[in-house]
Amino acid sequence: MEHAEGQQHPLGVYFKIWGLLFVLSGLSYMVDFLEVQGYLRWTLIIVFMLLKAGLIISVFMHMMWERLALIYAILLPPLLLVTFIGLMAVEANYIFWTRLIFGASS
């Protein structure tokens, strides 16, 4: 049972993920270098970002080998942020149009 002697995994796993992170970082840099624009740019940025974040959390931080109780306790609360982002986006949109209509210059 792996937990008895802590989080001990074969080194190969780390090297593979390390390589993948390099490739994904290279790809997200290429998005800027090749000047991809518009929705494709935003989609690619977010996809590469989430893949990198997922690999770091699940493998480097060993989350995929933890017990489900810890996974839920740590990974569920950040979902609240989705609501927060939504609220702030609505609010920011409102401020933006107010500024445009009333001619504020900032």
């Binding site: 810890l70 740590i74 950040p78 982002i85 986006a89 445009l100 504020a104």
Partner: peptide, 30 residues
Amino acid sequence: SMMWIFLLSDTFIFSCFLIGYMAVRMTTTV
């Protein structure tokens, strides 16, 4: 466990900064 809980709180701090950044970037007309 304590480090994970600290990191969870830190996640919220950085998220607040990034959401604040999103908000000001969306609101500016410049």
